[in-house]
């Protein structure tokens, strides 16, 4: 069973603890009044957690520049 650790959307260790990560999958398109276009609604995940249906395999660090 895949875990968040193997998902391309997880940023490793954004906290003090490397067993956690932020899931970057959820995006919010912002209103025109705002100066930036999107917001990342970060969600803390345990990297050992079972993957959710939005899972995409990949090493997050490879795509991170575009994902962030």
């Amino acid at each position: 069973m895949a875990t968040c650790k193997e998902c391309k959307f997880v940023t490793p260790s954004p906290t003090g603890d490397p067993t956690t990560g932020i899931c970057l999958v959820e995006r919010i398109q912002l209103a025109d009044t705002q100066q930036t276009n999107t917001a990342i609604k970060g969600k803390m995940v345990q990297k050992a957690m079972e993957a959710c249906p939005k899972f995409e395999a990949g090493e997050s660090w490879k795509d991170i520049k575009n994902l962030l």
Partner: peptide, 30 residues
């Protein structure tokens, strides 16, 4: 940038996840 995604919507009209202000007395973006 990093703390924006960890912070819920705020009463300045900012959405959850949106970036915060970039300094101590830097006005909020725009």
């Amino acid at each position: 940038i990093v703390n924006g995604p960890k912070t819920a919507a705020t009463a300045n009209g900012r959405h959850a996840g949106e970036a915060l202000d970039d300094g101590g007395s830097s006005p909020y973006m725009g």
